[in-house]
Amino acid sequence: MEKLKTVDELEPLFKDRMRLLVGGFGISGTPLTVLHALPGFKAGDYEVVSNNLGDYGKGLHKVFEAGKIAKAIGSFFTINKEAVTAWSKGELAIDLLPQGTLAEAIRCGGAGIGGFYTPTAVGTKLAEGKEVREIDGVRYLFEKAIKGDLALIKAAKADKAGNLIYHTTARNFNPVMATAAATVIAEVDEIVEIGELRPEEIITPHIYVDYVVKSKYVKKGDDYVEVN
């Protein structure tokens, strides 16, 4: 399978100041194997688009701790105390967006749409400096689409063409991020033969997926553990 790579083989894809779209909600649906390799890679100063910066000292949290994140765009950073501290010291730039606005901006980015008008956040602090337009009597806020250089996503299974299916709520931001970046790396739990996934169940068609990495993590109870 040509798309199948080890995470180390993918290091040349990572360049300084790239914008990374990183899937996951908390730790659910997070590409842990790929993220945990980033502290060891040369590149850094990333602008990261993700709902939050990892959880439980895992995922993006490790990338942040390694000093590789210059800016974060997401919806919920309050639980990440170190990120809040770094932000107040001016060491980390944060762009806060409502979660639905974040998701829709990425969807638009991947669908060839330049931006959209949403009723969310009109009249709030998060609307400051943004265009407001009334359409049929309702006030909407203009939000630009979001695209990335690299998307790091997590799926349950890939077939050998790169078609993806997801596990339960681990789907979250992953399918939209797969559409919105120049290059897409999908970490998966399992790789199956072409034909084993029913066309009806495929959520992300293979043309969106450039590389597939087999996850080093397995679920054990309510945690992820690394296996060799």
């Binding site: 919920f76 950073f77 639980i79 969310t120």
Partner: peptide, 13 residues
């Protein structure tokens, strides 16, 4: 510091 909003505003709207 205001660094978390989540889905609150989308639900309100």
């Amino acid at each position: 510091p205001i660094l978390g909003v989540g889905g609150a505003m989308d639900l309100v709207a």
